[in-house]
Design a protein around this nucleic acid. Structure first.
Lengths: 133, 133
DNA sequence: ATCAACTAGTTGCCTACGCAAGTTATTCCC
DNA sequence: GGGAATAACTTGCGTAGGCAACTAGTTGAT
């Protein structure tokens, strides 16, 4: 817990200084960025993010207000939305990437051996999965 | 990050139901409980907690208002305090312990082998240490 | 076709907590 | 021993985000 908080805080600080983004914002943008071209549904986004439904609604609203993503009603399900990065959002992510990678290396990855990284990834994925409701 | 959030949420939910404590509160109480008999200073507490200075001030205030800890001015440094568990606080922790251990096992520990636990502990301690400012 | 049961998101309300700027006590230096 | 520099908290302010209750759209059973 301590490690996760301390790393999150460091990444957040760097991101805010270097790209004007919060770690949470950056994370959502990253997930959306890697998603299908026609967009991602908030429900699917939630599975990959650390936010709850309500938190996600508001975060998405903010990102949209910032002009970094756009949303449209899902054509196959009128209740839902499809989210995509705007041009501005894609640019922001592209420009933020180098600094972000350095930041992750510096605050996290550089402190692990390859073997440890592998163990960490495996076990923590399993733990996360086990607690998914 | 996802694993830490998901586990924290599960522990928090269980603790609130079973002991009426949040995970953050429980964690602070646990640290204070394991500290020296004459008490612990907020500054030292902070090193072991996930909170910042200001967050800690308020959390301590809340715990004191709940009657779970008591504070007195540190005799050797008038700027600081010494925090100890009250009788009520010690009782609370004692009663919460069995459920809490089960909760930790269920949501976290049971999903790891001994070897993995060791790796995790080592690497994450190192990471936390590296980011301590 | 209709109505119940479910699912996707939203909103009201509330609280914890971070940041940065105070305040008071301490230490250090000359 | 007096005054700058530092340390230990505290406080004002702002915001993210959780919970629970709501709305609206979808599905499934009869």
């Amino acid at each position: 817990m301590l490690a996760s908080v301390v790393v999150a805080r460091a990444l957040d600080r760097d991101l805010q200084r270097q790209a004007g983004l919060t770690l949470a914002e950056h994370h959502l943008l990253a997930i959306i960025n890697e998603a299908d071209a026609e967009g991602i549904r908030p429900t699917d986004l939630q599975l990959l993010s650390t936010l709850t439904k309500s938190g996600l609604t508001r975060a998405v609203d903010r990102l949209e207000a910032l002009g970094l993503i756009t949303s449209r009603v899902c054509p196959t399900d009128g209740r839902g939305q499809l989210l995509v990065l705007s041009a501005k959002g894609r640019q922001k992510m592209r420009r933020a990437a180098p600094d972000f990678f350095r930041s992750v290396a510096r605050h996290f990855a550089d402190h692990l051996t390859e073997r440890e990284t592998e163990t960490l990834t495996n076990t923590l994925e399993r733990v996360a999965e086990a607690n998914r409701v």
